[in-house]
């Protein structure tokens, strides 16, 4: 019997970078992420900018853009790269900001859904964040201009474009109109 060699978070960290390609580790297996659409990146950037400004001004924590990896689980390893994420100040390791992957889950994870994302994959991703301790998972649906908010109590809410997305007790006071997230064309 040939056992498939599973990768650890450390193996993944040592992997040479491949320009233009992005990977995640799911149960020790390397998964390539599809290239993101232009609007996908813009929407993630809008949310990143708003969260960063809000959290930095109030000293609430660290907001990271796309490309930062979080180790959600060891053995088998799950390493995910949200489109935007937030880490509360009290969860930053005492010995400082890690130089490698962030060793745990973010407090807020944002995933912008791409046209070619599988339903299964989005569902699994949300569940992995919640199980690893993420308090808010925001799944953003560009086509429908909606956001689904997932919380550890497993009662989700779907927000339509006229509704407001709030930071609950993770980013208290943070509020953004859902439609504002999709307002990415500078000519308007």
């Amino acid at each position: 019997m040939t056992a498939t060699k599973l990768m650890t978070a450390e193996d993944f960290w040592m992997m040479p970078e491949v320009p233009g390609r992005q990977f995640e580790l799911v149960d020790g297996e390397l998964i390539e992420m599809p290239g993101a659409a232009f609007t996908h990146g813009l929407i993630a950037a809008v949310l990143y900018r708003l969260m960063f400004a809000f959290a930095t001004e109030r000293g609430l924590g660290i907001t990271v853009p796309d490309g930062v990896a979080f180790v959600l689980q060891h053995d088998p390893a799950i390493v995910r790269v949200p489109d935007t994420a937030f880490i509360s100040i009290d969860r930053i390791p005492e010995d400082g900001i890690p130089s490698g992957f962030f060793p745990a889950a973010p407090d807020i994870a944002v995933e912008v859904v791409s046209a070619n994302d599988r339903a299964n994959e989005v569902d699994a991703k949300v569940e992995q964040y919640l199980q690893a301790g993420t308090k808010l998972v925001w799944v953003v649906w560009p086509d429908a201009q909606a956001v689904t908010v997932h919380t550890p109590d497993r009662v989700a809410r779907r927000l339509q474009s006229h509704e407001s997305l709030d930071g609950a007790d993770v980013l208290p006071g943070f509020v953004v109109h859902v439609e504002h997230l999709f307002d990415v064309d500078p000519r308007r």
Binding site: V113, R118, A119, N120, E121, W141, A146
Partner: peptide, 16 residues
Amino acid sequence: IISPSDRATDIHDKIK
């Protein structure tokens, strides 16, 4: 019942 090939956006639209 979700199949492996179902797209996330299609399922989201269907529920709506």
